[in-house]
Design a protein around this nucleic acid. Structure first.
Lengths: 354, 354
DNA sequence: GATCACTACTTAATCATTTAAGTTCGTGTG
DNA sequence: CACACGAACTTAAATGATTAAGTAGTGATC
């Protein structure tokens, strides 16, 4: 048991103390803050004013949450590195969409990293939230397990979680369609620039045995889209012509692009699984003195704003990142009829691959 | 009082129930989860295993927080619109820096909007956090007051809050120095493109009576930096030549730039208080058939990555946004000796104003 | 004048933990 | 043997709110 306060001076004000001071019940104070209809208007105003005067700022959040079972927070679990995600243009747009809805509904977003620390502790159980939005592909592990167990509301985005409602885009069709467009003018050598197609932390080429590894289902679907379009056009792309970057950072993207562009035979069409990769590829190509799209055509994926004002501007697959956030938030809040939503993509034909 | 559970079947497992099931005290279960040194290793492992088997996932976050007085969360209050901030390049970099430190220390970030709703309710009191990082200039009001009262740990960034530790950059010197550089080649007509210099929600020019309004101290300091450099070089800029945008969005920035460039006399030097504004100004100038820097020289502020790869690339004042986040986090955690930090800026001379 | 409905409260149980202090028991020591 | 000590627990008092159910008083209605 805790020792009594030596000075007998309370450290913080509580409803109980305020009730004593004002000579009313704790229930009445609570009602003054939460349920105006439960007491007369005059009394309510008087209580609020007295509380302010005495320095009682309002109910303690933890105690309230313990009693009501609600927190007013939604846990936003980002599968990728948290710090990185905050500057990734696609993730930022998604968070923007989420914030638009949750902010209006007076809910706060608690950012959670999906990556586990050395002790594999999970942040799911300890998070003070009413539920989760899970964004991106989470590896199986403790966190994954805990997400299946906690029993709160949950929406998965860009991710398949058994039994969970979801929002996603049509990665396969977006990729297929962009490749189909690019193949109208037949290329000689195609390179595919993948994002986390295999489970390593280095830029590398894919080997046959790793090709259908499902570590990153988003990318695997995009890959199938590319490959099917290529097949339909009578092209064969060996796994030697498929690169993979471990992250969507400019640094990795640039390295991969550079490797691909200096490989032999030099590609004249690069299908990139993100705009970051595509922009890095354009930069690398220009620095090597190549002309885009004359010497090498480049197609991206995502449709980030930066791709529009550049010269050459980027041909890419636009995905509705912000809408993905708004939709996920609405499903979370039960404001949407559909429990699962597949958002369409659309092809933006610009200069890098006309 | 609450009615007893009709089935007599508990809705969730608690330490109490687990204690009964396993025939140990609640204290022992709690210790198994929190203080390994308080019980034998064998017993601890047994308890954790039994808990898992019965489906008890661990202590309830709200109850734990109520008892311990800690939450493991840090409230990140963004003065600007929350949804907007998440896509603003400077704010994103700042959040990136924060996340780098807090994620490593196992703390979660709770995003809070500094903007008040219609009822002026403040989120400060209800937030389940151990303290606050306040980012950006907060208007006086209920939220501002509450921040002064809550008594928890707090760090203000890009903001002055009486008695509070802070991190900031030298806005005055950064601006002065960039203007000084630009004035080496004497301009004929200077335009200053301000960010929230006055308290309206439209793009506008400044009138004399509003000039020294302190709604946005960051901008006011930058303005003084510009004006002092101009004065030193013998220039006078009337308030008619100073624009202000209400937000740092591309849309507002573009509109302001367009207005400035079509105003008479047309400016041949534009000092912009953000890179977003400067980039919009470059775009607007090019679209009008003007040459940058030949017809109009443009200087930015922030040093965002997008300014580097553009043609013409952007001359600007670099500020260490991510470092600002890391520093704020460290001060918050008490890991820094200094309680207040003023970060230096540096001038990046590039093509838009050589 | 009894009954009823309504307002404006109060009472007290409950939410799920943590932790200082107390208990028990086995072991080493003078 | 007595005593101290530490390990391994248990006991029970907080932590700070919310809320169903109960109560008292007032006025209207039959």
């Amino acid at each position: 048991m805790e020792t009594a306060n030596p000075d007998n001076r309370p450290r913080r004000l509580t409803v109980k103390l305020m009730a004593e001071k004002l000579n009313v019940s704790t229930a009445t104070i609570s009602n003054a803050f939460n349920r105006p209809d439960q007491l007369s208007d005059a009394r309510r105003r008087w209580i609020l004013e007295e509380c302010k005067r005495h320095g009682y700022l309002g109910p303690n959040a933890a105690a309230r949450s313990l009693r009501t079972g609600r927190t007013g927070n939604v846990g936003v679990m980002l599968a990728d590195n948290l710090a990185y995600s905050l500057t990734d243009p696609v993730a930022s747009e998604f968070l923007h969409g989420l914030a638009e809805v949750f902010d209006q509904r007076q809910m706060n977003m608690l950012l959670l990293s999906g990556q586990e620390d050395d002790e594999h502790r999970s942040r799911v159980q300890e998070a003070m939230v009413d539920g989760f939005i899970v964004y991106g592909w989470l590896k199986k592990g403790r966190t994954y397990e805990r997400l299946l167990q906690h029993g709160k509301q949950m929406v998965a985005v860009d991710f398949d979680l058994e039994g969970c409602t979801w929002v996603n885009i049509d990665n396969y069709e977006g990729a297929r369609c962009s490749a189909e467009h690019a193949l109208k003018k037949p290329p000689v050598n195609v390179a595919i620039m993948g994002l986390r197609l295999v489970d390593t932390d280095r830029v590398c080429r894919i080997r046959d045995q790793e090709l259908f590894n499902e570590t990153r289902a988003i990318s695997v679907r995009r890959l199938h889209g590319y490959l099917d379009a290529l097949k339909a056009a009578g092209h064969h792309v060996s796994s030697d012509r498929i690169w993979s970057t471990p992250t969507n950072t400019h640094q990795d993207a640039y390295q991969a692009a550079r490797e691909a562009l200096t490989s032999s035979p030099r590609p004249d069409l690069m299908l990139c699984m993100s705009d970051r990769i595509a922009l890095a590829a354009i930069q690398a190509a220009l620095q090597m003195g190549l002309k885009v799209p004359d010497d090498v055509r480049i197609v991206g994926f995502d449709g980030i704003p930066e791709g529009a004002n550049l010269h050459p501007s980027l041909t890419t697959v636009y995905q509705q990142s912000a809408e993905k956030g708004r939709t996920a938030a609405q499903i979370f809040l039960g404001e949407k009829e559909d429990r699962n939503v597949l958002l369409p993509t659309c092809l933006l034909v610009r200069e890098s691959c006309p």
